[in-house]
Computed example of a mutant assay.
Amino acid sequence: MAAKKKNNQYQELLAAMDVLEKEKGIKKEVIVEALTDALANAYKKNYDDNNARVEAVIDDRTGAFKVYVFKKVVEEVVNPIEEISLRDAMAISHGYELGDDLRQEVTPGDFGRIAAQTAKNVVLQKLREEERRIVYEKYKRLQDDLVDGEVAREDKRYIYVDLGDGVEAAMNKHDQMPNERYRVHDRVQVYVTRVLEETRGPQVFVSRTAPDLLKRLFEKEVPEISQGIVEIKGIVREAGDRAKVAVFSRDANVDPVGTCVGPRGARVQAIVNQLGGENIDIVKFEDEPEMFIRNALNPAEVKGVLFDENNGEVEELEPMGEDGEVRQRVHHGCTVIVPDNQLSLAIGKRGQNVRLAAQLTGYKLDIKPLSEMEMPADQTDEFAFDGE
């Protein structure tokens, strides 16, 4: 009866291995390797306090298991746990010589119950590991893309967004829109910035402020971008308030700005609505710096651009994401001349228009009204904005 029960346990183990291999893609060899290690440790814990060299073997055809200990064949035994005399070894088999490893079965008669529980634990562990691996690979593929989720909870550091699959993505303060309030059960679209493989499952970090979130929204709303006809050359944002997007067309017959704006502004308005009313300036990218600077300062009119390559500086950007890395951008200098009545428009509220234009073009922009260009140098006051 006991033998029949043991055989049933073996068959159940083999059946579980087959299910995991067929349905979860976990190779039987992987389970067998993990299980033999676990059985060896279980034997040491329950039957051998001396830390002998132990090996567990499983027959992957029948599911039967055996436990062996290894001892070195020596002339004179010093450590009986690890050594056996040549005389005793030859009593077992005449084939042994000095220096050989003697492999001796020590499977306890009552080891079946412990082995069955160990096998169950290993199978469940492998199943959990595989499920975590599948979820990790899914979200790793979604890195740098948009996903939908539901606000689950909040603590002092993060808002946690439930993405499904038992995954809660973390969104830190820097990645939260200042014009949005996140309440539990709110549906929210987020941009996946980073995915880490952790022992408890994948750790996903998301953002609502990343410039690439805006890029993905344009790709969804503007077919010409996903088709490669129109290209986004640059995006800068003060999330929740204003953004500038530089676009370029590979087809001379396609207006990149008008294409992104859409009929009656429908395309860009759809994006604005998803960002809680964030204003979006779409400007045409130009290879020629002067023309690009003129476009970037829209809606202000520009009379002239005077370049001074020696008048530049390094801008330290704010740390982005969890790595806290400080990035830098070199701004070459130039003076932008605008009509007197356009000065406030060019600078923008709290300097926002020229600040974003500087970030988009990579130039330090000094804004001067046209009238000051005709005044003596000692009477001029420059308006310097470099994106800081």
Rank of each mutant, 00 (worst) to 15 (best):
K6Q: 14
N8T: 12
N8V: 09
Q9S: 07
Y10L: 02
Q11A: 13
A15P: 00
D18Y: 11
V19M: 10
V19N: 09
L20I: 12
L20N: 06
E21Y: 08
G25N: 04
I31N: 05
A34Q: 12
L35Y: 09
A40G: 13
A40W: 03
D48Q: 01
N50T: 05
N79D: 14
I81D: 06
E82W: 05
E83I: 06
S85K: 01
G95A: 13
D100S: 08
R103I: 13
Q104L: 12
T107N: 08
T107C: 08
A115K: 06
T118P: 00
A119R: 12
E131D: 15
R133F: 14
Q143T: 15
L146K: 11
R157G: 13
R157I: 15
Y160K: 07
L163M: 14
K173H: 14
D175R: 07
R181V: 12
Y182L: 13
V190Y: 09
V192W: 05
E198T: 10
Q203M: 09
F205W: 04
R208D: 02
D212V: 04
L213H: 02
E219K: 05
V222H: 01
E224Y: 04
I225N: 02
S226W: 03
S226N: 04
I232D: 01
K233W: 07
A239Y: 10
G240Y: 11
A246W: 02
S249F: 03
D255E: 02
D255F: 04
D255C: 01
V261G: 03
R264A: 09
R267N: 05
G277F: 05
N279P: 00
P289W: 09
E301I: 15
K303S: 15
V314F: 07
E316C: 04
E325F: 06
R327H: 10
R329P: 00
V330C: 01
H332Q: 03
I337L: 08
Q342C: 07
I347D: 01
R350W: 06
Q352H: 04
A357G: 09
A357I: 10
Y363K: 01
K364Q: 10
K368I: 15
K368C: 10
P376D: 14
E382M: 09
F383D: 11
F385N: 04
G387H: 02
